[in-house]
């Protein structure tokens, strides 16, 4: 009986890659997240939507502890990854971030060469083997479809790339570290439609190997891309469901108002 329960627990864990339990976040006296319970599935794309300031980015950044550097940040509750609480004292934050990659709103390549950008995450782990690094850089750039565009310019500054290329480079840089989860904070909001389409296609391909959580302001994007969508409002999780269901037949009036553009 107990064995059976264990296997159920394990399969649950596998299904629920990320879990939030009664999470509250404060910035000094301001309550940014007001108590959220949520399970995020493995190898799915989960979209966070909601008006600006609703707490979705803050919530996203809990999963790789990027809020730790924000002045006045305080958190209650638990965040679990594969069943492990990542806010326990003994958790190695650097190790955690190798497992949970992040892509930011504005492409933010380092002011270094394309090669150095992709190799950085590996080099800081102490990997010095040139051949391994080279293979890894090539591999990561191929995964994001950038290799053919830059293979002869690996030593050129990453800042010379276009915005869309830079963002794909940032994704490649994240993949090189081999995370299992990728957090994306409005990854296409600073890009033109063509670059956006490329990135979306890429994200869709990535879900085979990775669990992806994406914050977006673009309803269409959330609709086409994600398997699950969560609607946040004023620091609360209003509705969380399969994207198809949420966008066609939302349970809550607030969600409907938001996705039909009546507010926000």
């Amino acid at each position: 009986m107990k064995e059976k329960k264990d296997t159920i627990d394990k399969s649950l864990k596998r299904k629920h890659k990320l879990q939030a339990k009664e999470v509250k976040v404060f910035y000094d006296d301001f309550k940014a997240i007001k108590g959220i319970d949520m399970n995020i599935r493995a190898n799915k794309i989960t979209a966070f939507i909601g008006p600006s300031g609703c707490g979705k980015s803050t919530f996203l950044r809990l999963f790789n502890r990027m809020n730790d550097y924000v002045d006045g940040f305080r958190m209650e509750g638990e965040i679990l990854i594969d069943g492990e609480n990542i806010y326990k004292k003994k958790v190695n934050v650097e190790q955690l971030r190798k497992q949970v990659g992040m892509v930011f709103q504005k492409p933010n390549p380092f002011p270094k060469s394309i090669y150095e950008n992709v190799a950085y995450g590996l080099k800081i782990q102490g990997i010095k083997d040139k051949n391994y690094l080279r293979d890894k850089v090539e591999d990561s750039l191929k995964q994001v479809g950038l290799w053919s565009e830059v293979e002869n310019d690996l030593n050129k500054s990453a800042l010379a790339l276009s915005g869309g290329q830079q963002q794909r480079l940032c994704i490649a840089r994240t993949l090189a570290v081999e995370p299992s989860i990728i957090l994306m904070d409005e990854p296409t909001s600073a890009l033109d439609p063509i670059s956006t389409a490329k990135i979306e296609e890429l994200i869709y391909e990535l879900k085979e190997k990775y669990t992806i959580v994406i914050v977006t302001h673009n309803m269409q994007q959330a609709g086409r891309l994600s398997d699950y969508t969560a609607f946040f409002y004023m620091g609360e999780l209003i509705e969380y469901d399969k994207s198809k269901k949420l966008f066609t037949n939302p349970e809550k009036q607030q969600t409907e108002n938001y996705i039909t553009g009546r507010f926000g």
């Binding site: 550097y69 650097e94 992040m102 002011p111 840089r173 570290v177």
Partner: peptide, 27 residues
């Protein structure tokens, strides 16, 4: 040095000193 550079470095698993010595100081 833009905050986005620090964010990128930390998000890739760099420690504080690695971020300082390999990103902030060169930049």
């Amino acid at each position: 040095v833009p905050k986005s550079i620090r964010d990128a470095s930390y998000a890739l698993g760099a420690s504080k000193w690695q971020t300082i010595s390999q990103q902030l100081l060169p930049a």
